[in-house]
Design a protein around this nucleic acid. Sequence first.
DNA 1: CTGGGGATGGGGCCC
DNA 2: AGGGCCCCATCCCCA
Length: 515
Amino acid sequence: MANCMVFHTQIASIMEVLANAAVADICKLVDDDYAVFRLEITQSHKENRGLRRKLQLLELKMARERAEKTARERVLASRPSSVKILDRYRGMSRGEGHLTRGHRSFVKPAAHNACRDDQPITVDEGSGTSTQHVIVIESADAEAVGPGVKLERSEGEEDPRHSRDIQTGASHVATEDLTATAPQPRTRRRITEVSGTPNAVLKSEPDTETLTVTQRLLHTGSDHRSYPERLGRLGCPPVPSSDYLLYDNLSSRAVQVNSHRDSGDALEAGSDLSCSYTTEMDPGNISLGLETQTDLSRGDWNQYSSSVYSEGCLDKKGEVIVLDEVTVKVEGDAPLTWNVDETPSGEGHSQGRDFLDYRESLETNLNVTTHSPLHTVRDRDPVSTLMGPSNSRGRVLFDQVLNSNDRTRAQAQGGGATSGNSKEKRFLCMFCNKGFSCIQKVEIHQRVHTGVKPFSCTQCHMRFTQAGDLKRHQRVHTGEKPFSCTQCQMRFSHSSSLKRHQRVHTRKTLKVPPV
DNA sequence: CTGGGGATGGGGCCC
DNA sequence: AGGGCCCCATCCCCA
């Protein structure tokens, strides 16, 4: 018995020694790794500092060059057209998604990489859930300064360097003062976006040219649940936290848009420094169809950018609105673009269709501004995150949104909720305003805009927005051709292909022989 | 060789 | 889920 006890004691002591040794090993490993890690971090910091310095030098250099160039232009007394200006800057921002048509420019700055790769452009004021963003908008400069340069500052916080950049930068776009021969201090417009406030106010501060966008607390939320899970919760009648618009609530929103309607103001707008856009939304009247919880403490830049993107209908020109993945450049002396009060039926439709499509949806559906599935879906949908780890993901997504709008718009015009369908379509797509009778349909439809493709082929990389499309696609792999022509031996995998093929036969029979 | 036009494959999206 | 339409890309034939 005593032996047994001694044996146990020895075993225990041995175990303890072994455990201690193991712990010591682990600690040593951790320490080593930590040291290496620290070293790497330090090196990265140094690199960052170096790069930042380079960037500053580049900024200065470019600002100087621009100033000289502008001075030269002014000496030549050639009043540059807005298109020229844009073209000039287009060249400065290679590889960016310009959708410029005429004076309309819708660009995606290289800076978007910074937004995505680094931290969100969120300046947390630390005031509870409120997050305040100030985007210092500089025409062309926003792009010119290159990627990674974030142009926003907290309100009240003036970055001296930035201010300097602004003031040394040429004012070739924002100002119309062509008489000046020396670079003037840039006219500046700032867009301040204050998330977390219970109401949304877009207001201008004419005297300071500060365009303040007080943004309604965003309610898009981030739903990280799996797609089937989300589908599962979908269903008619409405379920909260879905990204769609409830048609019923459109009318409950009081929106006033005071803007320069007079297109003649456009040219003078350069000197008219007042920001003409005012949107007042009575918080009491704001009743979004569906609102989900928003965790602003996470600094969801997607929400922010979506809001700015949506709020990008900010009237007035002159500047570049730097967004997450989208930069809206609005030409200084061009007719007001992305202009809330511009009538949809105006001649503007011949230009920048994609851009206008979105704008149009904003015009007709102003409460879109707080529900941008473009971002929320990207944030939420597991598939979409699988789709593209690359930096171009957002770009692709956005392009899809833009490209899809043409078709969708035409369809929406034909069969939108407001077109008086017999079936009540109270769920609106927030992109094209098209109405649907059921949430699932909105969800499915909105994939057209968001690019979300939840159904993936197991045998290839193809993805589809609808299950039926996947099913049909898989016939490509199986070789199945269930649709056979009754008049010949041809078989097709698409029913529509068969139908189309059969027209060949009917056309042949209908063909009138030459006389 | 080349360009035009028809036919087909296949995806997108709506009903 | 299936049918249908539209669109785009590609192939093939022919002048």
